[in-house]
Design a protein around this nucleic acid. Structure first.
Length: 267
DNA sequence: GCTAAATGTTGAT
DNA sequence: TCAACCTTTAGCT
């Protein structure tokens, strides 16, 4: 269930399993038949992630482009592939590894210039070394939209989803309703830097954990549910810092979580 | 075992 | 602004 860190993890895993290997590419479900025929038998050369988009570069300048959306999942493994579970859109297989993709929003074969076009529409990715954090901040601080809306815009900040939005704004004590243009540059710098920290940690762990140990309910380990978060999915519960009830409100078709006690605009 | 909601995006209205 | 895409999981029973 993917924000950017998940997709970067998939890129790494696919590189380890399949890098420089000749792959059998098939479409058990049938919907990707044309694309599978284009890629079948080619060698995987490059795997890269930008935000929530995954790009697998094959011989002959052909790329498999995948966006998981809300429902998409990868399953990977060593050894012989298991029977496909559910509707497998793409199956990859080398001599000693397999991967199954189900339920993606986007799954197409692109030429190199089309990959560039997709990537040109994406903003700064906190998990990429080439991210233009300053440029993203300048654009964000020119907007009248709220910081909450802006953080979800993939053409500004690529890879941040609803969890990282809620949690990073809480950790910075920023009111999500604050217009981008009212966010001081220093606050943007701190927010960006925290996103880098959080998302790198998420990539390493394979899950999102934003709470500091002293703010967790349990002494050891991090429970599967809300213990890992300050505000995400904690509507009505007491804020871990100030005790105010965490608020959930619909915003652009998504649920925004925040603490009205801690996240107060000063301007 | 069932239901509802979900970490996302696109395209139609 | 909303439906569609389509799978997993949490929270019930």
């Amino acid at each position: 269930v993917p924000e950017g860190h998940t997709v970067h993890g998939h890129a790494r895993r696919l590189a380890a399993l399949f890098g420089d290997r000749r792959l059998a590419v098939s479409s058990p479900q049938g919907r990707f038949g044309t694309g599978a025929r284009l890629l079948d038998g080619r060698i995987l050369r490059t795997t890269t992630a930008h935000g929530k988009h995954l790009f697998l570069g094959f011989d002959d300048e052909r790329w498999l482009h995948v966006h998981l959306g809300l429902f998409g999942t990868w399953r990977f493994g060593d050894g012989p592939p298991p029977d496909p579970r559910g509707a497998v859109r793409v199956a990859l297989a080398s001599a000693d590894a397999w991967a199954h993709l189900r339920g993606p929003t986007a799954c197409d074969v692109l030429a190199t210039d089309e990959v560039t076009a997709v990537r040109n529409r994406l903003g700064a990715d906190p998990l990429r070394a080439d991210a233009d954090a300053r440029g993203a901040g300048e654009r964000l601080r020119r907007s009248r939209s709220s910081v909450a809306v802006l953080l979800m815009r993939q053409d500004l900040v690529a890879g941040v989803g609803n969890v990282y939005r809620a949690e990073s704004l809480f950790r910075a004590r920023i009111d999500p309703h604050l217009p981008g243009r009212a966010l001081p540059e220093s606050s943007w710098n701190a927010l960006w830097s925290d996103l880098v920290t959080l998302m790198r940690d998420g990539l390493r762990r394979g899950r999102i954990v934003t709470t500091r140990p002293q703010h967790r309910t349990r002494r050891s380990g991090i429970a599967r549910g809300e213990d890992a978060y300050y505000v995400y999915r904690r509507a009505g519960l007491a804020c871990r810092i100030c005790g105010t009830a965490v608020r959930a409100e619909p915003l652009g078709g998504r649920t925004l979580y925040h603490c009205p006690g801690c996240q107060v605009s000063s301007g």
